[in-house]
Design a binder for these strands. Structure first.
Length: 272
DNA sequence: ACCCAGGATGGTG
DNA sequence: CACCATCATGGG
């Protein structure tokens, strides 16, 4: 497709924002972006984007993946202009969007994420794909890639297999998750989640072995696009304690506080 | 060598 | 209820 102009989208910041672990950097502001069995080559120059897909594929899938229908400018304008810390966070995180990634990939990624660092999470997810994912031809004649493995493919692996990929003590969590989600279990579970309100969905996710409140909220925010979910990890906990000793005014961002959470997370991560 | 990482679990007081 | 040790493993 032809190059297109998209305001308020920053590939590098999204890639480094800790919400997706299936992007591969291929050059300066250029990435191979995978979702399921799809792979998109993307490159950014200022607000101009070069995508490898056809216009039809863009309209049918990737436009939604990048969440281009959500008005992030409106969310940013909810901030208190006198809140200097938040203004700085919003500035450094400008262009980050909450991707609409496949639920299953988000569930697996954030199951691995607990007490872990982003570099290692990415390596483990890549290992899952390389070992259990289907080999697919690359986009635009580029090199082949491995799709994210299905629940049934992962259900064929053992705890020891997952441990060998570097999952550590989380290997048993992944084995239990795959066992529960194989044979159509994922589709049924996803229907239940999508029909539920936020708190009910979080509670349902927390019944999974290895999923606590924080991971459940990450799955809701990044896997179900529930923008008012607000995962509190060690970065957020420390940043809020330092800058909002009286408590963070989530109600100011009703319906989209999770986006603000993501901006603060990124700001803290990059030295805020 | 040391502390930390997008924490959760199971046990104990 | 509230703590608290423990959990693998490598990044910085």
């Amino acid at each position: 497709m032809e190059p297109i102009v998209i305001p308020n989208l920053d590939l590098k910041r999204i890639a480094d924002s800790g919400q997706c672990f299936t992007w591969t950097r291929t050059g300066e502001n250029a990435y191979a972006i995978r979702a399921g069995k799809r792979c998109l080559k993307a490159r950014q120059e200022a607000e101009t984007f070069f995508f490898s897909c056809t216009g039809a594929e863009w309209e049918a899938y990737w436009k939604r993946y990048f969440d281009l229908d959500t008005d992030y400018g409106a969310i940013v304008r909810l901030a208190d202009p006198e809140d200097a810390y938040l203004a700085a966070a919003l500035r450094s995180a400008s262009g980050i969007r909450i991707l609409r990634q496949p639920l299953w990939e988000v569930m697996c990624s954030f199951l691995i994420s607990q007490n872990n660092n982003i570099t290692r999470i990415r390596r483990s997810v890549e290992g899952l794909c390389r070992r259990y994912g289907e080999a697919c031809p690359g986009p635009d004649g580029a090199e082949a890639f491995f799709a994210f493995p299905t629940p049934d493919a992962l259900a064929g692996a053992s705890v020891e297999d997952f441990a060998a990929l570097g999952l550590g003590y989380r290997a048993k969590y992944m084995a239990a998750l795959a066992a529960r989600m194989k044979d159509g279990g994922l589709q049924a579970f996803e229907e239940t989640l999508r029909a539920a309100d936020d708190e009910t969905a979080i509670a349902a996710l927390m019944t999974l072995y290895g999923v606590g409140r924080k991971v459940a909220e990450c799955i809701c925010l990044f896997g179900l696009h529930r923008l008012d979910c607000f995962p509190i990890d060690t970065h957020i906990r420390k940043a809020l304690a330092r800058h909002y000793p009286e408590g963070f005014p989530r109600e100011r961002f009703r319906g989209c506080s999770g986006v603000i959470q993501q901006y603060i997370f990124y700001h803290d991560l990059t030295g805020g």
